[in-house]
């Protein structure tokens, strides 16, 4: 009997310890997601389709980014040559006709960028999610047949974030976000992001097509299509400067 109990104890210990070894924590899941989606440096070509009712407008752009900074140049006919330089918490804009460079006032940053459902602030949050939010796993669900971890993140004390709370659905196998809900401090749902297509590029899963919906407005959405991306390109010194914005 003693031998049986000892065997049972060892079995329980092994079973539970193996469960602990394989169950990922929220932090580990977010870190794995960041391994795929967080950009140290990148060069991307994108198209943004802004929809409102049956109307739509397309904008194309080329963006260079590093951990804290980005330089975006619009290439579609209406906005061609318009550039944004995001440097830390500051945003500067270049108007091609007059070749003016103007610093954008802080209060403008939570407006929709160029009429889209993405605010300037959305684009300016460049920290890793784990540095901005404290996450916990709240459930597991399927999105389009793919099992996902559902994580809820609350803004860390003292961190300035655009959304107090975010819920993220992360693919359990590929560790890429498939859906995201962004909430105000009041608990009100502000925006919803749905990823329509992901692809493995240079060994990392990355969203190719996603749609952001502003839940406070009826019938509007902005689709972002990634046309090309290069991870970790060498960005020359002096790229994120006003001189280069000209």
């Amino acid at each position: 009997m003693k031998r049986f109990l000892a065997f049972l104890a060892i079995f329980i210990l092994l079973f539970t310890s193996s469960t602990f070894v394989h169950a990922l924590t929220a932090e580990e899941i977010i870190n794995k997601r960041d391994d795929n989606e967080y950009l140290e440096t990148a060069r991307a070509e994108m198209e943004m389709i802004i929809r409102s009712g049956r109307r739509e407008m397309s904008k194309t752009m080329i963006s260079l980014t590093d951990k804290q900074n980005s330089l975006t140049e619009f290439t579609n006919p209406r906005d061609r040559g318009t550039k944004f330089l995001k440097r830390g918490d500051e945003l500067w804009m270049f108007f091609p006709d007059a070749e003016d460079i103007v610093k954008i006032s802080g209060h403008m940053l939570n407006q929709g960028m160029m009429g889209s459902d993405f605010s300037y602030q959305d684009l300016m949050e460049s920290d890793k999610l784990i540095d901005l939010y404290e996450f916990e796993i709240i459930s597991e669900e399927e999105i389009d047949g793919r099992p996902c971890y559902v994580l809820e993140g609350l803004a860390r004390e003292g961190k300035e974030v655009s959304y107090y709370k975010r819920k993220i659905w992360i693919d359990k196998e590929r560790f890429v976000g498939l859906k995201e809900e962004l909430y105000a401090r009041s608990g009100r749902l502000l925006k919803e992001l749905n990823v329509l297509q992901v692809e493995e590029i240079e060994g990392r899963w990355y969203p190719l097509r996603s749609v952001m919906e502003d839940k406070l407005r009826k019938d509007t959405s902005t689709e972002v299509i990634l046309k090309a991306i290069e991870f970790n390109p060498l960005i020359p010194e002096g790229t994120f400067t006003l001189e280069n914005l000209r």
């Binding site: 500051e90 006709d97 006003l242 001189e243």
Partner: peptide, 22 residues
């Protein structure tokens, strides 16, 4: 509202000092 006065025949030398200074 812009006027043609903004466009001028000129020579400009630009010296960058810091990322936001020049």
């Amino acid at each position: 509202r812009e006027s043609s006065g903004k466009y001028t025949d000129a020579l400009e030398l630009y010296l960058p000092l810091e990322w936001n200074s020049g």
